[in-house]
């Protein structure tokens, strides 16, 4: 019987201390840590079309279309199937890709979450993020790729 009372006392203690742990989302936005990996942001100005991100992506979220002479470059992003592994950001040699802090985006169908490079310029959830400014000071914490055969292009 004593154990039962102990348990009851424990829950009552929690009820009376008035502390709550849940957050008032979406009224109050939860803080995410600086390293948080949210939705993918692609900066066309920086991209050198090396196709490393396409190659490393585990599930074909990124699709790049172009011919040998780099004509008709297309950068298609199927954000609905992104698994936020951040490998594309890690391999990108020119910091053209950034996984932002933003995790809120919606689409009514899967098709709405597929974007080509023109559409990617004005998706609402990018806000005004500059890929270079965010992620300091942690950017230096990344380690470059190892030596050896470079197998892209």
């Amino acid at each position: 019987m004593l154990g039962v009372l102990k348990g009851m006392a424990t829950t009552m203690k929690h009820a009376l201390d008035g502390e709550t742990f849940t957050v008032k989302y979406p009224a109050e936005e939860p803080e995410v840590s600086p390293r948080f990996r949210g939705v993918h942001k692609f900066s066309q100005e920086r991209c050198i079309w090396c196709r490393q991100c396409e190659k490393v992506c585990p599930n074909d979220t990124i699709q790049i279309v172009m011919d040998d002479k780099r004509n008709g470059e297309q950068y298609n992003l199927h954000i609905g199937q992104c698994i936020y592994c951040r490998l594309c950001e890690e391999v990108c040699p020119v910091d053209a890709i950034l996984l932002t802090q933003n995790f809120e985006f919606v689409g009514e169908t899967k098709d709405e979450l597929a974007f080509n490079k023109e559409e990617l310029k004005n998706v609402p959830w990018y806000k005004d993020l500059d890929p270079l400014e965010s992620r300091e000071p942690d950017r230096s914490a990344w380690v470059g790729e190892g030596e050896g055969e470079v197998d892209y292009q």
Partner: peptide, 27 residues
Amino acid sequence: NLLEDLTGQRLMFNYLRLRGVAWDLPE
């Protein structure tokens, strides 16, 4: 929260790499 600070995600960490880990401890 601790893991998020360290790895950048809460569940799907993708933190380990063959040969080490992806990031050093957060500053």
